[in-house]
Structures are given as C-alpha cells and as structure tokens.
Design a protein around this nucleic acid. Structure first.
Lengths: 353, 353
DNA sequence: ACTAATTTCGTGTACGTTACCGTTAACCAA
DNA sequence: TTGGTTAACGGTAACGTACACGAAATTAGT
C-alpha cells in the first residue's frame, strides 16, 4: 500500500541501508546467532519501515530445508468408507505442498482396536516429525500421545473430533452439538406436528460414544428449547452386523409407530436397507455423511436427508494449517468448525465433500 | 513415481544428455524459435523420458513476465449487496496469485443500466488484458464483447450466469434449473400435503428475467414430475421499492391463503419485512442468498430457508481458472456448477460463502 | 568461391535467498 | 607481547530458469 515499488526491496537493499552485508541481514531474518543486539535492532527497524516481504520463490530455490508431517487417522474398513474422504484431502494437500519441501507420511489405525492406535502413535514418535495431524478417537491413548508431542514442541492438529482443553495447534471438524441441533430443526419441519421420533445409535466401540452423544444432546435440546411436543425414543445398537441391527430395529418398530428415524452417524444406510427390504416408506429417515451407500438410498428416497461436514476438507485444511503455521508463521484459528451441510436427492450431485 | 531423484533433474541435465547448451533446451521448453527440428526432437524425447517438471520457483524468480486480468461484475448497490461476495472471492484470488506476476484490475457496471456495461467492456478491450472474468448479465451486449475477445484470443470466464454455446474458457456458477428444483423439493416436505404456493419474481431489468425464469421452471417441473397436488401461483414485481412490493403483496395475499412463498432471488428480505410488519407467521418463506438482511430474517424465523450458491467461491475460482489455464496450461472444466446449499437458522453460523 | 543473410546454438548475467566459509577485531590468559 | 578463542560480520557460490547478446554454422545469392 505504501509504495508501488514495494515488490523490489530485498536483502540487498536492506543491507545497503543498514551498512552491513546481506549475510548479516540473513542472520537476523532467520534469527540465527552471530549478530549484535545493536545491529539487529537497526536491521529490524529497516525491515519494518520497508515492510519487507521475503521472496518466497528465491527462498524456496535456495533453501534445502525439509519438513516432515505425519498423519494418523482410521483406515477405511469395509464397514465404513468415511475415512476415504479425509485421506483424499490429506493427499491433495500433500501434493500441493510437496514442492515446498514438505513430505507427508500417513499412518493408520483400526477404529475397533486401541492397540493399533498406540502402535501408530509410537511410530510417529520415533519418526522425528515436524508436525502431526490426527483423529483423536481414543481419549486416553490420545492424551498420552498429545503430551509427548507437547514436550517435543511438535504442533498437532485434530480433525473430525476434538479433545478440548488439550494444547495443540487447532481443531478442524464439526460442531457435533450444533449438527444434532440442526437435524432436529429439519425434523421439526417434517409432517406432522406431533410426531414420534426414534434416535438410533449404532457404534461398536464405547469410546466413540461420546462423539454420538453430543449430537444426540443437540438433537434433544432443540425440542426442549423450542417447546415442541415431539416424542423421542432412543436405542443403542452395539453390534454393527446387519443381522443384529435388523433384529433390534424390528423389535423397536413393532413396539411403536414412528414418524421419523434419526441415525446419529454414517451407518444410516444399514437402516435404509432395512426400510427398503421391509417396504417401509412412511417413516422419514435422516442420517450422516456423503457415502456411496447413503447417496444411493437418498436417490431412491429411502433416506430423506443427510447431514455432512466436509470430511475431505477437514483433511486438506488440517495439513494446510500445519504448513501455514510452520512455514508461513501465520497464526491459526484454534477451532475451525466445518459447515453443516444438508444433502437431499436434489442437490447431492453438486456437493463437494 | 519413476525415480526418487526426479526432483533434481533440470535444464542442465537435459542439456548434458542432449549434447547442447541450456540455452537450446530453454528454447524448446518455451517453444521459442531458433532451434532445428532435429535437435528439438532429440531434446523433447529426453524431456519426455525424464518426465521433466520445471522448477516453478526458479521459473518465477527468473521470469519478468506479467499477466493482466480484468473482471467485470455489477457494483454492489444499496439495493443488494450480493456482489460483494464474488468481489471478495476475486480479491482473495488476486492476492494469492499476485506473487506469480499477475495483476488483477476490477471493472464494475450498474445492473440497471446496460450502457455502463458496454462502457466497462470497451475499457477492458482497450486495456490489453490477458484474461477476463465477467458476469454476462445482458445477453446482447455480452455477446458483442465475447466475440471481440474471441477474435483477440483472450480467454473469458463467466460467473453467476451463463450464455451457453458461446465459446469461452468456462462457466462457474449455479445450475439455476436445479436450484429451483431443489427449492420445490424442500417445499414438498413442508406441511401440509395439499398446499398453495406463491412464486414471487422481483426484478427491474427485463433482461435479468431469464435468469429467474430458469429457477421458476425447475420449481414448477418438480411438482409436475412428482405428481404433486401443489397449487402454484406467480406474480411479477418489476419495481424494487418497498412501497410497490408491499402493495403488490398485499393485493395478492388478500386474494388467497398461501402456505408457502418462494422468492426467486435475494430480494426475499423485502418480502420478509412485509411478513414481519404484518405479523404473518403461518406462511413458510423460502428465498435466495446469504446476505445480512436475509440472515437476520432467518434468525427471527421469518425466513425458513435460504438457498445459496457460494458467490464468493465463484469469484475465487473464476480468477483461479484463468490462472490455471494461462500459467499452468491446465485444462479447465467447461461447466463448473456450484453446490446448492440449504441454509437455515441452525446452520448459517458455519456457512462459508 | 566468396560474401551476405539467416538460422542455429553457446555463454554470461540476472533473479533474491540461503548457507557455508573466511575474515576481522576484540578479549583474555600466559 | 604473543597466541588462542570467539563473537560479529563479509563474501560468495549455489539454487534452476529466463533472456539478451554474440558466435558459429548453415544456406542463399552472385
């Protein structure tokens, strides 16, 4: 804004103005040792006045610095392909920043096996990384690893779920409570006025439950706060096999007549399968995530709404945040909540994960 | 993928292998004149074999090439601030690519005055630009300008609305038909089963009407195709002042009792104002765009749903497409439809325009 | 065959930084 | 004084590419 020629001031000019060599300027720029406080101050002042911006191209060309990032997320299982999306985002980001001397090495764990998480974490610890992106699914195991990273001053970003209060670079993911709240808001628009809603939690690992509970909390609170007469029932299904889910659903649906079923995670397609097989089409079905199975049931109207929170962008922005922090020294928003997207039969075609 | 040391092969290595100097290699790389077919073929072959990727940093550092892009979009009026968002996107992109030697100069026109559009277009023609981004609102005037650009081989990208069949780089914006279709889909979920819906078109310039008509078409077709019993009425309001809109609405709403009002553009806030003043709260209201006024009416529940199509990203991606095309020689998707986002009281907080 | 015109190619410098190596000078101990 | 140590700084070769200039080689013209 100051001067039009601000693009052309470099170390050489700074050195000239400060009556030192460019070597000295370089030292204060990269705050290395070997320069007296006096000249350092003088140079800093000139840099300030000139609003010097280092030329990133020259920098990259001359620098041989390399950074290594590690990622630790669940592997995509046959059960759910949700984690494909964050991985895609990670790979996209990795590709964009590899020219800047950054190497990204992914590690995976099994959502149903804490041991594999610990294993991955210790590999990363041993691997001398400069930054880590992780999905902190298991609370206790995560905290141990987090503290280790804190000790080593390795910046850490969380995606998909948060462990609040633990010092790290940032969290990128959904606001779970609000996303449940939104689902309730949509349910509220669905006919009729006094309806019965069934909440379905499907999850094997008990640790992952707090994740679902926050959504459920938001969902319930909506109706309380808006004085609705909606009647809520909930069932927990702790086995993810279809036979078991089928049995549980059949039992529950025999008991009562529901207007809406709200599935708190991406397993909604399993419920949709049950609906389809049993020709249930008078119950509205709402669930989570832009997965192929889910989209198919959206197409044939078995599922009415999907809520989605840009899993791919979570991976992408997670890595980019590390990059911005470590390379550009930008400061990073501590909590980056993803949009809560509503997907239906008529807009899924254009959705970008 | 081939070799691990693929990062270290440059013109020098190519020159060595081809028994020529780096000058010659440089000539074929930038396909300049002055190299015989024979040696050119030899060098090209080596480049192919080595899968040579030029170092973008060294390239930018050494090059003093500059590109100039022009943008031509409506100015933000007091009537609607819609175009603030694309402009923001443009500025963001401009900022990101300015280090790559690209200068972006914005031009504006008045949506209600074709003359200003022509004026802007001729300024751009005179300005020797290398790429143009525009909102082709006025069809005839746009086509004249488009042909001029085609003659000069200047790539052109359209945002927000398209003029199909005219040769240009790409279109980035909504699929209007589908976005009307989606609105109808939402309306269909709203109680009760047999409802009366009022479609409201508010627009001064008759030229912009085809824009709105496509949405209306999608909206109507939904009900036809889904065999719904929804009863549709439509009014056109060609003055944008509140008094006039008020009068038209009052007259129409007195005639009949409607369940839903669908406003085909961002002027939905004006209708909301009328609803609020007249304490109408039993009619669902749906409209377009993430604007402050609209959001306020969303908050207080006067507006039920807003449809939004990432106007900021349209500007951003528009400029980036020019950049990718001209600098990186990437090939660009001809039609880039934006997501059709559904915004309600409970998810607007996290929406990113 | 000789010169002129033209095509084809090589060399050198510049771009702004980084990082290493060398130089100075200042200080202290012997 | 001398020698040695070290903090403070200068100088400069890279990094890979662009481009101008001029040399060399080829072709054309007589």
């Amino acid at each position: 804004m100051e001067k039009k020629n601000s693009g052309t001031v470099g170390v050489k000019e700074i050195a000239r103005l400060a009556n030192v060599s460019i070597g000295t300027v370089d030292r204060v720029l990269n705050n290395r040792v070997g320069v007296s406080e006096k000249t350092k101050a003088k140079i800093l002042k000139i840099i300030e006045e000139l609003n010097y911006q280092p030329n990133i191209f020259a920098r990259r060309l001359a620098s041989k610095k390399k950074l290594r990032f590690a990622t630790l997320i669940p592997q995509t299982s046959s059960e759910t392909k949700y984690w494909e999306a964050p991985l895609n985002g990670i790979q996209q980001a990795a590709n964009e920043i590899k020219d800047f001397g950054i190497e990204v090495i992914p590690f995976f764990f099994d959502q149903n096996d804490k041991a594999t998480f610990k294993e991955g974490a210790s590999k990363i610890s041993a691997g001398e990384f400069d930054g880590v992106l992780m999905a902190p699914m298991f609370e206790d195991e995560s905290i141990a690893f987090i503290e280790e990273c804190n000790d080593k001053k390795i910046p850490l970003v969380f995606i998909n779920s948060d462990i609040p209060g633990h010092n790290n670079l940032c969290y990128i993911g959904p606001n779970l409570y609000q996303s449940g709240y939104l689902s309730a808001h949509i349910v509220n628009y669905l006919s009729p006025a006094n309806k019965k809603t069934l909440i379905v939690n499907i999850s094997k690992e008990i640790d992952l439950h707090h994740h679902l509970l926050r959504k459920e909390e938001g969902f319930r609170n909506y109706f309380e706060q808006n004085g609705s007469t909606n009647e809520l029932t909930k069932i927990d299904i702790q086995q993810t096999g279809y036979a078991h889910i089928q049995e549980k659903l059949a039992k529950q649906l025999a008991k009562e007549k529901y207007d809406v079923v709200f599935v708190t995670n991406s397993r909604v397609s399993t419920v949709a399968k049950y609906f389809e097989e049993n020709k249930i089409n008078d119950i509205k079905l709402i669930g989570y995530d832009f997965l192929e199975d889910n989209i198919n049931y959206l197409k044939n109207k078995t599922i009415d709404f999907l809520i989605c929170q840009k899993p791919q962008e979570q991976g992408y922005r997670g890595l980019m945040s590390l990059y911005y922090h470590l390379v550009l020294h930008a400061n990073i928003e501590k909590e980056q909540f993803m949009p809560i997207d509503i997907i239906t039969k008529e807009n899924y075609q254009y959705y970008s994960n």
